[in-house]
Design a protein around this nucleic acid. Structure first.
Lengths: 211, 211
DNA sequence: CACCGGTAAGTAATTAGTTACTTACCAATA
DNA sequence: TATTGGTAAGTAACTAATTACTTACCGGTG
């Protein structure tokens, strides 16, 4: 009759709970600016008391670091997988671009989180981790561009570093515009329209091309 | 002998003070995330009491709206001026790109402010104003691309909307990377390296081009 | 010119509400 | 029973906004 615990207190292991917390932050980041996400809000999303969070992460910053770690690992895995599946370096770039867009559509909170943290001027561990990820990403792009050059697929005189910047920049631009519109649904189409322009910008023109 | 007022209380007109407040927010935005800027901090930057701010703006949000207004006006003025000075549509795009980069270098707080506000999911008047600015910007780009197409400067089959997206996206990407590096100094060089790739992507290849 | 009164820019102190984080205690499970 | 994931009730610091009051400026009038 006097049952108080209607829901029988879901008690997860530390590891599981930490994963859930990271998930929750990513989910919330899709809708709010990560800077405005409070510990109370995270707890509410998990039907947990606010104080419980600090059993698993001593400081809020540590939660943020775990989120960055998660994003870095999964995005790089996505990118590397897409790169391996392609037949040629330029096809790999194409594949990576679309895979990245797919990743963003699937995890809308991720780019929001990244932007917000990179924007911070102080060099937090979180920002460091994300910077490291972007450096690795750029390294992959540069490798592909170099291979493309060696195979004669690249236009002569192409600035490979600039090409990598343009590649990353156009994805960031796409994300920004999807934030503007409020829907990430149209992103894939937009990406498919932008890619040909980029590819035309770096690909060596075939001598005997039909109009 | 017993002079208390060492600094003789600088009393500005409302208009002047409002301009100073907007300036201060822009300056602070260059170093901190705009979301973390407090009214106390703005007041401190102006050697003013915190409460005084509310003599000029009834709510904090109104300060933010004034900042958005300022950014929108000055950026669009910069863009339109650059467009008018150019001899051809494609030269105009080139000029706008570099002018925009120059604007960002001169006002490092502006892109930070824009990103932060666009990131917010709620459709605030601030976000509306910035969206309006970007729409106008895109409209200018589309106009130039159409003229370029009519004059035969554009590659056949170029998706003009996608080209405009790529244009805006690559600027956003440049800004993001300058945030990463922490210095906006290298931006101009990066821009000059990226532009040729973009231009190659949309420009009609001249039939008799020397290697 | 000097005085006076209204207006508006300023201050200092305080408010209610949040925030990240802590503490004391509890209960499940290994 | 010792450990650990959990709660509930705190706390100190900070936030935007408001308050009561002060001070500078400016345009008539005596």
């Amino acid at each position: 009759m006097s049952d108080i615990a209607v829901t029988p207190m879901l008690r997860l292991s530390g590891e599981e709970r930490r994963a859930e917390i990271v998930d929750a932050v990513l989910r919330l980041s899709a809708e709010r600016s990560p800077g405005l996400i409070t510990t109370a809000e995270i707890a509410r999303a998990l039907s947990l008391s606010q104080g419980a969070l600090f059993k698993h992460f001593p400081r809020k910053e540590d939660i943020w670091l775990a989120v960055a770690e998660r994003i870095a690992e999964s995005l790089l895995a996505t990118v590397e997988q897409a790169a391996q599946q392609a037949a040629s370096p330029l096809a790999a770039l194409h594949g990576i671009f679309m895979a990245h867009v797919g990743f963003v559509i699937e995890h809308p909170g991720a780019p929001r989180f990244i932007f917000h943290e990179l924007q911070r001027s102080v060099d937090s561990p979180v920002k460091s981790r994300l910077r490291e990820m972007l450096a690795r990403y750029r390294q992959i792009l540069m490798g592909l561009l170099e291979t493309a050059e060696q195979q004669g697929e690249l236009a002569e005189g192409t600035n490979k570093s600039a090409a990598a910047s343009l590649f990353l920049g156009s994805i960031q631009g796409l994300v920004m515009q999807s934030m503007l519109a409020g829907s990430s649904a149209a992103m894939r189409q937009q990406a498919e329209a932008i890619l040909p322009i980029f590819e035309r910008g770096i690909r060596r023109e075939k001598s005997g091309e039909a109009a």
